[in-house]
Amino acid sequence: MTDPIPEEQTEQRQRIARQFIEVIPHARALGMSFGELSEQGAEIWLPWREDLVGDPRSGVIHGGVISALMDTCCGAAVMVHPTGARSTATIDLRIDYMRAATPGQTIRAKASCYHITRSVAFVRAVAMDDDDSRPVASATGAFTIER
């Protein structure tokens, strides 16, 4: 038996990662949809929804929703990384809230692993709404790598 060529490995890993993420009940409940998943990182969208609002006066989405989006996106970036984690869990996650997301607009998060060891992935993420020039939030986290 010969080893699969790297390209096949990459495709298989990305397929597994996509399956892993798409079956997360909480991600589905929040209405997340998945964009690019590649070795460069992960991209996830979350459309605005009335029941996710944190401040009824302004209609701004709750910070906790951004946390869930960032956490999912960072975990997805770990899963698609070439290191080939079977599973991952958050060790710690810090979110900086730079501004309120504009009500009604979809939030897009992008995450990538900036360093990875045998057992830990260091991940960064940023969240945007329709205004690309001003991020809504940024995140850094450490994630386990289950082999």
């Binding site: 997360i24 009940p25 909480h26 991600a27 709750h62 910070g63 906790g64 929703v65 946390s67 869930a68 989006l69 960032m70 956490d71 999912t72 975990g75 869990a89 958050t90 996650l93 979110i95």
Partner: peptide
């Protein structure tokens, strides 16, 4: 439980 749920619960 989703890590994001945990974060949201603590933030709330």
């Amino acid at each position: 439980i989703h890590g994001g749920v945990t974060a949201a619960f603590l933030e709330v």
